[in-house]
């Protein structure tokens, strides 16, 4: 059920500003792909083009092709809402819905998309929370507000919320940058487990994290501030961190950047 993403010649704009330029890459199913690169190089923008969240930003616009198996996400007649149901997303800052309980947060994606039987929902909520390694911590307080959890728990709640709708692909935009090392470890373990079911793309500033969790790593860079971000190279994580084919990648990874 996890699907391959094939991007070709993709550019994204904010109004007239081109944020990323002509990116092509393939994301293999049931793998973890990490995006690394300096701030402002368009990693997050690129990630958001993969489930059509980029166009939610006023002025956001995309050129190029994103193929999910054999369907173009930007083809005519494609409904962005169903794209987002297929490709879920976890954000940088944990953002549980403040008016909803833990249970309702996890059930939100299903409830807001139509009616589900209570018994069915119970099962899905438990499965998702177990999948996000959160069940044991919250099973006795499912009716308490989700905003009462710690940052790391909130982020796992958001992951549970995202996987409850059974997406094919899970996009993660720096999911650990607001978390302490222990919560980060919990999320990284979780990513490892989720690979068996989902295709995962993760943006991170933490290169050790990229090395730990990902199968393939893509390095993004920009020529100068204000210039569009470009994909420098994408390769197996091991190769990127040991013997990258581009000098800029090695400079960035070894800290000789800029």
């Amino acid at each position: 059920m996890a699907k391959r993403i094939d991007v070709s010649g993709l550019s994204a704009y904010y109004g007239s500003f081109r944020a990323i330029d002509d990116i092509s890459m393939t994301v293999e199913p049931r793998s973890v792909t990490a995006f690394i690169g300096p701030s402002g190089c368009g990693k997050s923008t690129f990630l958001r083009t993969l489930n059509r969240m980029h166009e939610v930003t006023p002025g956001g616009r995309v050129e190029g092709k994103v193929m999910l198996d054999d369907e173009d996400l930007y083809g005519t007649g494609v409904d962005p809402v169903s794209v987002r149901r297929t490709i879920g997303m976890v954000f940088q800052r944990p953002n549980p819905f403040p008016t909803m309980s833990i249970y309702d947060n996890v059930a939100a994606g299903l409830r807001l998309n139509g009616d589900h039987k209570k018994s069915e929902l119970d099962g899905i909520v438990e499965k998702s929370l177990r999948g996000a390694n959160l069940w044991n911590e919250v099973k006795d307080r499912l009716n308490r507000p989700g905003s009462g959890l710690s940052g790391g728990q909130q982020q796992r709640l958001c992951i549970a919320r995202a996987i409850a709708v059974e997406p094919q692909v899970l996009l993660m935009d720096e999911p650990c940058s607001a978390l302490d090392p222990i919560s980060t470890l919990a999320i990284e373990d979780l990513i490892g487990e989720l690979t068996s079911r989902f295709t995962i793309v993760i943006v991170t500033h933490n290169m050790q994290q990229a090395a730990r969790v990902s199968d393939r790593t893509a390095f993004f860079n920009l020529a100068e501030v204000g210039a569009p971000g470009k994909l420098v190279e994408i390769d197996d994580t091991e190769r990127i961190f040991s013997n990258p084919s581009v000098q800029a990648t090695e400079d960035y990874i070894s800290g000789r950047f800029g």
């Binding site: 987002r84 954000f91 819905f97």
Partner: peptide, 8 residues
């Protein structure tokens, strides 16, 4: 965004 990303 969280809601939209859930396909709502």
């Amino acid at each position: 965004e969280a809601s939209l990303a859930l396909g709502v």
